[in-house]
Amino acid sequence: MRKTYGDAYAEDLRFVARRVVGEENFIDMTPNRSNNYCCGGGGGALQAGYTEGRRHFGKLKTDQILATGAAYCIAPCHNCHSQIHDLSEHFKGGWHTVHLWTLICLSLGCLGENERAYLGPDLAEVGL
C-alpha cells in the first residue's frame, strides 16, 4: 500500500475483510495503513539467510498482532503469509495465518476439504 496504490486500496481490502468475517470479528492493528510496520518477509529477507535478524525484525509485527487478541491474521501477500506464519510458530503467538482467498471461499460456503491447511480447529469443519 505504502509503496504502490496508497491507502485507498487498503480501504478496499478492509471492505473485503469486514464482509467475509463480519464487522464484529474484524480487528484492525495499530498502527495501520501506510503507518503500519513491515512484517519482515519482503525484500528478499525470507531467502537472505539471516534468520535470526528476520525474526527480530518481525517482533514488532508479532507484538502488533498479539495486541489485537485476534485468533487469525489475514495476510494477502505471499511473503507476508510465510513470515507471519513463521513468527506465530517461533514466538508461540498462537494465532493462525490465513490467505484472503481462504476466508472468501469459506464465507461463500465453497471452501473444499483440501483447502483448509491454515484454518484452526474452530473453523476447520465449518461449511463442509
Partner: peptide, 16 residues
C-alpha cells in the same frame, strides 16, 4: 554492513 539485507526496503522511513 549486512544490514542492507536485513532492511526489507519497506519505505516506512521514507514515508515518515
Amino acid at each position: 554492513t549486512e544490514w542492507v539485507w536485513n532492511c526489507t526496503l519497506c519505505w516506512r522511513c521514507l514515508y515518515v
